[in-house]
Amino acid sequence: MTLKTILATGLTLATVTAGAAQADQVKIGIAAEPYPPFASLDSSGTWVGWEVEVIDAVCAAAKLDCVLTPVAWDGIIPSLTGQQIDAIMASMSITEERLKTIDFSNPYYNTPAVIAADKAMDIAPTPEGLAGKIIGIQASTIHQAYAQEYFKDSEIRVYQTQDEANQDLFAGRIDATQADSIAMADFVGTESGSCCEIKGAVANDISILGRGVGAATRKGDAELQAALNAGIATILADGTHEAITARYFNASIYSE
């Protein structure tokens, strides 16, 4: 099979269905996994959560015709650069490493990273406190980068989704997990998370943990980046962001 044939087959197949999808739609990539309270699939097959509402609000404010496109988190950046999606709004932190490959909008939320562990366990969110313990983290996250940098004396187990790490924390296969504070607060509030509690935030390292969560766009897609920035600015200014936040959380999760 020559490259040309592959291309030709792909092109024909792709153009067959191209009629259905409009070219001016903006595909917003989200992670195809339950990540409550930000984004999760409910039993009727629709995506719900704080971030999903924010995406809707930003797109409405920026007058973009957005479609949610679930993609595997581990491959979400290749999907963006490979043009399967146009933007990522999946609680992705703005970091130096990622900025080498993709662009980001301004942040739309900002929360610390925390360590959650079994209530009975005496664990401090420090390299010493976690030495010799098994830490579960999600692949391709700031938490993976952080754990690999700081928790060198711990065994690090890499999961495809944060939910799998939570499940294994519940099962007792791992001692602790590092993740976003809001997502962890949600998890320890559920029945299966009742085993565990948040042991505290890890020491901040802005070069790894980044400066808040933004919408990622392809390098050079300045038009979409500007539109998303405008949309985020609008919902921050007109109180929509605050109103959505109030429906989910007690306190604001946005800081300048």
Binding site: D74, I77, P78, E97, R98, T101, A139, S140, Q144, A145
Partner: peptide, 10 residues
């Protein structure tokens, strides 16, 4: 996969 997620080389 680890290389991909660390370095963004796909």
């Amino acid at each position: 996969s680890r290389v991909r997620s660390d370095t963004f080389i796909v």
